[in-house]
């Protein structure tokens, strides 16, 4: 198909980050929203975050306890399967690695189901959450995270398409085998690598 082109078509908006743009993506300066349904509103009083499944002793934090954990700043590029990418987004939050210090994961655990207030789920390999590769984001540009972007807290896994970065995160459940989450059951990729364009299940 390399020989095919659309006569007269060319890049319209200059792109200074071409080497950071995965195939099929374009750069946006706003922060679009992708959610299957309405935005859940989660009162801080009833918010919790848990690590469950294949762990020796599950742990649950309240909002106040969670806030007290060591926070960091992260500057990352994000890539949404609906084709937009946004560069150098500035977050603050808690590294997943920091959370894992509070539990012992069972040896057979290889995958994680991230689950959210409101019922959303998404599956990820455990390795992709470890060693600073993922964090729980609680704010952007120094502001608390807005509800439509997943506030009060969302998972952020910059190396994968953004639907893997579950909004309104409620916990991580450790599993031995990979299982499809919400969008994955609806036909999206099990892994979601933007650099190889794993958008849909048939791209895996």
């Amino acid at each position: 198909m390399a020989s095919f082109f659309n006569p007269g078509f060319g890049r319209k908006h200059p792109n200074q980050y071409a080497d950071r743009l995965p195939p099929g993506q374009y750069e946006t300066h706003d922060f679009p929203v992708l959610t299957a349904g309405p935005t859940p509103r989660i009162p801080i009083e009833s918010w919790t975050f848990s690590l469950t499944g294949l762990v020796d002793t599950p742990v649950t934090w309240t909002w106040d306890q969670f806030q007290a954990l060591p926070q960091q700043e992260f500057t990352v590029d994000i890539h949404c399967v609906t084709k937009w990418s946004k560069f150098d987004t500035r977050w603050h939050g808690i590294s997943v690695e920091t959370l894992l210090e509070h539990i012992i994961i069972k040896p057979e655990a290889r995958y994680v189901m991230a689950y959210s207030h409101g019922g959303y789920t998404t599956n990820l390999p455990l390795d992709d959450l470890r060693q600073g590769k993922a964090f729980i984001g609680m704010g952007v540009d120094g502001e608390p995270l807005a509800a439509e972007h997943g506030g009060p807290a969302r998972l952020v896994v910059p190396k994968l398409y953004f639907w893997k970065s579950a909004k309104w995160i409620q916990g991580l459940r450790f599993m031995a085998h990979d299982q499809p989450g919400f969008w994955e059951q609806a036909g999206y990729s099990m892994y979601g690598n933007p650099w190889t364009e794993q958008r849909y299940r048939s791209d895996d």
Binding site: A2, F5, N6, P7, F9, G10, R11, G24
Partner: peptide, 8 residues
């Protein structure tokens, strides 16, 4: 696809 290979 543009003639130079650029795609959107």
């Amino acid at each position: 696809t543009a003639e130079d290979g650029y795609q959107a």
